[in-house]
Design a protein around this nucleic acid. Structure first.
Ligand SMILES: [Mn+2]
Ligand SMILES: [Mn+2]
Length: 315
DNA sequence: GGCACTG
DNA sequence: CAGTGCCAACGCTAG
DNA sequence: CTAGCG
């Protein structure tokens, strides 16, 4: 059966084998409940990823994938998986040598077959590396993970996101925001992959620290939970390292409502009329068809860090 | 979720 | 046959 | 070095 016809059925039940080009992909337990409070099933998850594939796959292409698996749904136990030893032969893998010399076989993103294979394993979220397999030591984006503390509002997250954007802009860099799908915002800075993780991370630390220093009531870079004040937003820059990841644009989250990490226009961050709960596996496709993808420049803009490092150094 | 292994 | 184990690694930094 | 964080 064609993948499209099979997956677009309103109700998905039991198991299904779909053909993608020459590949056969097994999709199992389609009626298993993954979101008990909402009634969404594993079939609903697979249908969403099939329909959004054209938009999400560019952000996964040629990147090692970290799987965070929820085989029994969002309230069941979960585990991380890097080393994938049982993947079908025809899915792309890359063998990456770790610090201690042992090798880990990562799945490589970008193919629909891989996306549906990982979703079928219960990998609700997509977690790509910040670098691509042809240049694993040089990230092609920097991320700022804005995490609201207990009691901090999404309004305040928006406020801090704009501070980050403005500072980046003042050193000559464009940036892009998406909802995390939980309560925060992720700010991405697209890069030409020419600086290594250490240089990128040091730059990110300087930006985050400056935002916290200039806005101490609402932003902090303090990692110790107990020392973050209520209402502050934690500007987490420490994800900018090899082997770490952040959830991809258009990735589903294992959260109530089956929310999706959704790219925003900066004007939406300014207007504060939207919230993370507005974007779910049921609403995001409609939004994309109306507004397009605000993150498109993230894969096109090859920004260079040299001048920006110089400028932040003199501030 | 699926596979290897145990009893 | 049913039941169980397994599937992460690591980078950072305050103390 | 370890503990806590993600
Ligand atoms: Mn974080
Ligand atoms: Mn976060």
């Amino acid at each position: 059966m064609s993948a499209a016809k099979a997956l677009e059925a309103r109700e998905l039940k039991g198991d299904l084998t779909i053909k993608l080009g020459r590949r056969l992909i097994q999709l199992t337990h389609l009626d298993k409940i993954y979101w008990p409070d909402d009634g969404y099933t594993k079939g609903d998850l697979l249908r969403y990823y099939f329909k959004v594939s054209k938009y999400i796959l560019p952000y996964l292409r040629d990147r090692p994938l970290i799987l965070k698996r929820y085989p029994d749904g969002i309230e069941g136990e979960s585990f991380h998986q890097h080393d994938v030893d049982e993947a079908p032969e025809d899915l792309r893998l890359v063998s990456i040598e770790m610090g201690d010399g042992h090798k880990v076989d990562y799945l490589v993103g970008g193919d629909l077959a891989t996306l549906l294979y990982t979703a079928n394993l219960g990998a609700i979220e997509c977690h790509p590396w910040h670098s691509r397999i042809d240049n694993l030591d040089r990230p092609d984006w920097i991320v700022f993970d804005l995490d609201p503390g207990e009691g901090a509002t999404f309004d305040r997250v928006c406020e801090v996101a704009l501070k980050v954007r403005d500072l980046l802009e003042s050193v000559g860099l464009a940036s892009y925001a998406k909802t995390s799908g939980s309560r925060g915002i992720h700010v991405f800075v697209p890069l030409r992959a020419e600086h290594d993780y250490d240089q990128a991370a040091r730059f990110a630390a300087r930006i985050a620290s400056a935002v916290a220093r200039e806005n101490p009531a609402i932003a902090t870079v303090e990692r110790t939970l107990q020392r973050r004040r209520a209402g502050q937003i934690y500007v987490d820059h420490l994800q900018n390292a090899r082997g770490k990841s952040i959830v991809a644009p258009y990735s589903v989250r294992p959260r109530p409502g089956a929310t999706v990490s959704t790219p925003l226009e900066w004007q939406e961050v300014i207007d504060r009329k939207i919230g993370p709960q507005d974007f779910t596996i049921e609403t995001v496709l409609q939004r994309i068809s109306e507004k397009g993808d605000p993150f498109k420049p993230v894969l096109r803009q090859k920004q260079r860090l040299r001048q920006a490092i110089k400028k932040i150094g003199s501030m």
